[in-house]
Design a protein around this nucleic acid. Structure first.
Lengths: 338, 338
DNA sequence: CATGCACGCGAAAACGTTTACGTAATTAAA
DNA sequence: TTTAATTACGTAAACGTTTTCGCGTGCATG
């Protein structure tokens, strides 16, 4: 083992082997300009000295970072943490590093993060946007400046790849399921109302009601606020005043307040009120009673979004379609009782 | 607005203002060498042109990345996703970026990731180590090379900060709770057996039994495997053969198989068998029946670990103690029925 | 009037790569 | 044999910062 005193960089390798740093660099990058013999000498010494290229220098010169950013509302959410797993799996395959940024549904933070990524910190961005506003002008500009793929929570009509799920269809199907179980006063717990996903889910709900001759009632709609206690009170008020026979929750965050509200009001699930929710909760089947869910393929969404981004980064042709739509799954359990 | 054609860097700012790039750089960094008048000129133009420093160049020259890495087994785990939230909160305060690496309990991946971080990609590392092995030699070397803080899953006896919880005490307390509820044959669902946390939890369980004159029985111990079906079968076998009156689970991953096993065996919780588990599941109170949990302060652990790392990075004195121990909370619910 | 000293700023090197270009030696084509 | 092409490598510039050192000016001090 050679002297390990000084830092081991390309210069050091060149010195020890009595060749130029250009040759070392090219050898390390497996350039056709370098003979196999020389490459082997370089590779062996690099391994022996535990050489790894300095990323800052490499980034600076080549303008590539081998890093992507994931900008999402929150990590502590089953959907997003699963998405990250999918993203990470693909990133590993491509040898990329993954930066995480949480917006906490704050659009200013969202802008600040993405802006700070434009100076060459990352090669591309994967994002699921904040639900607090729908500000497509900002993103219309952003997608011109950096490769970006939206997943689940997207901005429509932008020149960017979007990976989503069949929100409308599955919400329609779920609503029909409730109707088939005998429900006629189906309340809707409304989340993501500013986003296409939220609107599609709501549209699926409305259209399913109409298709079965049921009117959509404003009174049966509760909108999500970022306040646990408030949501609980809203649902209790809904249950008390308008006596719905089902709660269709469009986001996971409503599950706990919905169950709690029913308990506190002494309402039996599913006998007196049925519950169905969008959710990636792994313990849905253990709830009391077990919860009928629409689960999105979060892991696959992450994988698919990451794959698209890497295709773009590698200048590969995207399969014509910019909108990738994956299927969600409706799993019927006790909370809808049939 | 000036010409936005070319890239906006320090050189560009210098040209427009007719000063040197050195002055611009110093002004941007608020150096005492520069007059307030010049600073203001620079700051204003920088803002106008939307200048942000190139991180690669900055990193290369200054050897600081304003980036930390979080190396954990898996994001899709309530404990870790909450930890990440805590870490992120602190990182934002310090203006740091956060890289995420998942080891999936694979020690080779763990080594590969951490090694790839030693070339100046990050300023420091936060990690919760893999449970598959206990290989402290590797980490003994690692902590000499880069600022590193362990959280929850740590290597002991190393010269590094470790943020953990009161595993022994809380496991003792939880076991006593089961005993007070009348249990005498308390089975132990053993996870993290290679790690200090896992050993401490088990020790707390054993000592509590002994303190109450109950012998520890090998037969009542089931060890975790990374195989859902296998764990389920093991627990069913345990329940069938040895008829324990309680299951004490040391990790969240046992909850679903434990509940399922009881259901499939037709055993009533908590009447015939009580269940208690370490867990950060937000829906613990909604389970059927609601689950008595030991919940670790995951968010705070992340915060605390990050704070320590930044203290180290800023050369601040650490409050003498290298071991920070936070308290877990035992929440009694229906599954232990008293 | 000479000396010393802040003050404000600039010149230039340095960080560790990548890469365009040049060049010498060897081989193939004419 | 001459010329062209290929192979294998080296030189040096470039990426955008930070930082050391030095210089000139103005002011106060002796």
């Amino acid at each position: 083992m050679k002297n390990m005193g000084e830092a081991v960089n390309i210069k050091r390798l060149a010195q020890e082997l009595n060749i130029s740093i250009a040759t070392v660099s090219k050898a390390l990058n497996d350039s056709y300009e370098i003979s196999l013999k020389t490459k082997n000498r370089v590779w062996n010494l690099a391994k022996e000295l535990n050489y790894t290229p300095n990323p800052a220098a490499s980034n600076l010169r080549s303008n590539k970072t081998k890093t992507i950013a994931v900008v999402i509302p929150c990590v502590a959410n089953n959907f997003f943490s699963l998405s990250i797993m999918g993203i990470e799996e693909i990133a590993r395959q491509y040898g990329y590093h993954v930066l995480i940024y949480q917006t906490h549904e704050n659009i200013e933070a969202e802008k600040a993060f993405t802006n700070s990524l434009l100076n060459g910190r990352v090669d591309g961005i994967l994002t699921s946007v904040s639900s607090s506003e729908y500000n497509s002008e900002y993103y219309a500009n952003l997608v011109k400046k950096i490769p970006l793929v939206f997943f689940d929570r997207v901005y429509e009509d932008l020149d960017a790849v979007k990976v989503t799920t069949d929100d409308y269809e599955i919400a329609f199907e779920a609503t029909e399921h409730l109707i088939e179980c005998g429900c006629t006063k189906i309340a809707y717990l409304f989340g993501l109302e500013n986003l296409p996903a939220g609107k599609a889910r709501f549209a699926g709900y409305c259209d399913a009601l109409k298709a079965h001759g049921i009117a959509v009632s404003e009174q049966l709609i509760v909108k999500y606020q970022d306040n646990e206690e408030f949501n609980l009170q809203q649902i209790k008020e809904l249950l008390g005043k308008y006596k719905p026979d089902a709660l269709f929750s469009s986001i996971e965050e409503f599950i706990i307040p919905a169950y709690c509200a029913c308990r506190e009001m002494g309402l039996q699930i599913p006998n007196e009120v049925k519950i169905l929710s969008f959710s990636n909760l792994s313990t849905a089947k253990l709830l009391s009673p077990s919860l009928t869910t629409i689960s999105q393929p979060a892991f696959e969404i992450g994988r698919e979004a990451a794959k698209c981004l890497f295709k773009i980064l590698n200048n590969k042709q995207l399969d014509d379609e910019q909108n990738i739509i994956l299927k969600s799954v409706l799993t019927k359990r006790e909370s809808t009782g049939c």
